[in-house]
Amino acid sequence: MADTAIFDVDGTLVDTNYQHALAWYRSFRRFDIVLPIWRIHRAIGMGGDQLVPSLTDDRVERAHGDDLRAAWAEEFEPLIDEVRPFDGAHDLLLEVKKRGFQVVLASSGKSDHVEHFLDLVEARDIADAWTTSDDVTASKPAPDLVQTALARVSGTGGIMIGDSPWDAVAAGDAGVDTVAVRTGGFSVDELHDAGAVRVFDSLRDLIDGLDGTPLARPGV
C-alpha cells in the first residue's frame, strides 16, 4: 500500500512549462542554436542535464551543457514572477494530506525556485519534505528523484502526481504508479503510454476523482 504522495511541482502545481520553454529557447539562442519552441516544450519535464542532449546531441552537451543551463537560469529568472499556481493546487495537497498520505514535493528545480513555489502554493505547512536539483545526480526521466523523495520520508510505497511523460517514466522505473494531469500540455494518450494509470484534465478534476485513484480514502 502506498503511504506517500510524490508531487511534481513545475507544470503540475505551478504553471511554468511555457516560461521554461521560452527560457530554454533564449538560452540556446545565446549559442546560435535555434530550436522550434514546440520541440522544446515536448522536452519540458526533463531536468536540464537530460534536456540539452535530448534536444541537441552529446557534442553540444560536452561543449556547452553547463553554460546552457546557467543561461536558462538567467533567462527564467525575469519570468518567475509571472508564474501562478494552478487552480486547486493548495486544496489538492491539503486533501491528500488529510487522507493520511505523506506529501513530498519532488522537484529537480533550482533550490531558490523550489522555495519560491513552496510559498506560491502555501505548501510549507503541508509538505513533509521536498527535493531540489541539489539532491540528485540524474534528473527525470531517470528514477533518482522519485527514489530520493520516498527516502526523505522513509516511505514504503508511493504514488506520483505529475504532468509529463517524463514523470511517469521516472516513477515507473522506481516502481511507482503515476496519476497524471494535463496541465503540462501533454495528451491523454501520451501520458497513458508513458505509464500513467489515470489522467485528469485539471487539478480540480483530480480532487473530484481522487476516490477512483490510488489516493482514495482508506476503505474506498
Rank of each mutant, 00 (worst) to 15 (best):
L94N: 03
S111H: 12
S108V: 14
H113R: 13
L118T: 02
G109N: 09
K110I: 12
V104I: 02
L120N: 00
F101Y: 11
S111Q: 09
F117R: 08
V104Q: 01
Q102F: 13
L92C: 04
D87Y: 07
V121A: 03
F101W: 03
L94C: 02
D91N: 04
K98H: 12
H113G: 11
E115H: 10
F117G: 08
G100L: 10
S111W: 12
F117T: 10
V104R: 03
V114K: 02
L105R: 04
V96E: 10
G100F: 10
H113A: 14
K98F: 02
S111A: 15
F117Q: 10
K98M: 12
L92V: 09
L92T: 09
K97R: 14
V103T: 05
L93P: 01
G88V: 12
D87I: 13
E115G: 04
L94T: 15
E95C: 07
S108H: 09
L118N: 07
G100N: 08
A89Q: 02
S108E: 11
S111V: 15
V103Q: 02
S107M: 10
D91I: 01
V114Y: 03
V121G: 00
F101T: 07
E95D: 13
V103P: 01
D112T: 13
G100A: 09
D91F: 00
H116M: 15
G100I: 11
E115S: 11
K110Q: 15
D119T: 06
L93H: 05
E115M: 08
H116W: 13
E115I: 12
G100V: 05
Q102I: 00
K97H: 14
R99H: 08
H116G: 08
R99A: 11
D119C: 00
L105S: 02
V96H: 08
A106W: 03
K98L: 13
D119R: 09
S108N: 09
K98D: 13
H90C: 08
V114G: 06
D112N: 13
L120Q: 06
A89L: 06
D91G: 00
R99S: 07
G109M: 07
V103A: 08
V121K: 01
D87V: 15
V104W: 01
K98Y: 00
L118Y: 01
D119A: 09
G88M: 10
V121D: 03
D112Y: 14
S111K: 12
D112I: 13
K110E: 15
E115D: 12
K98G: 09
D91W: 01
L92I: 10
H90S: 13
L120V: 09
K97L: 11
D119P: 00
D119K: 10
V103Y: 01
Q102T: 13
K98E: 15
L94R: 13
L94G: 01
D91R: 13
L120K: 06
D112H: 14
G109R: 05
F101Q: 06
D112E: 15
V121C: 03
G109P: 04
G100T: 09
V121Y: 02
H116L: 15
L92Q: 02
